[in-house]
Amino acid sequence: MHQLGAQTKLLLALGYLFTTAAMPEKAWKVYPVLLILIICTAFLARIRLVSLIKRSLLAFPFHLAALPVLFTLPGDPCLILSWSKFSIAVSAPGVNRFLAIGAKMWLCIQAAALLTATTPMRQLLAAVDALRAPKVLTAAAALMWRYLFVISEEAVRLMRARSSRSALLSEGQGGGSIAWRAKVTGGMAGSLFLRSLERSERIYNAMQSRGYDGKIRTLPSTQAEECAPLTLVIGGFLFACLLLLGTLWQ
């Protein structure tokens, strides 16, 4: 799995995402197949499922946004919640859609997380590059990736400096109004931005002194770009079959 070209992996992952998102919501018999695909891939790539699942928890608060469909989708009521005079009906199609959204979201996050876990950022960017994404964007993304950790450390240092000075005299809320606290945080963001701006000027100088002339050039890369057409065709066929299966077998 780790040896597969980054471009192939990216395309397969996108195919998987498309298949999952386009799957009819009542195709409950096909969802397990999609899950098995994830588990097998994780197993082949020797990625621990636990770490994958942890990553997926990040997006779960968003599932709340789908909660209202439980009540608003027309259909047979399968549960009626009453509270004094008010009562509200949960519809069967509503439950089905809510669960389907949750399942799709979860499967998609697993697939995306698998892609990230098996492909280093650099190769991923090369793959995006090979898919004809604009060079300015991929080069800026590479630069961002390089400085993300440097600047994050700066942010952590700023926050540490703030917390080491925000002692509490007694239990409870610290001093200062919310507006004041926001202003302090804003000052931190401002200084982070300024430092980054000045850093970008120094980086620009460093690039310039090594010949940068406004055009972005990189080594013609040798690895990671090789596409495996056969794998892609098999994958595409598999996804098409799953979609067909999901449409017919509900």
Partner: peptide, 26 residues
């Protein structure tokens, strides 16, 4: 060859190899 004070500003590429290759590429 200008070597800047902060190596973090000078080394702007994702890998050491790419960074050392930057000048020759240009």
């Amino acid at each position: 060859g200008l070597v800047f004070q902060s190596p973090d500003d000078q080394l702007f590429s994702p890998t050491v190899f790419e960074d050392v290759a930057y000048g020759p590429i240009y």
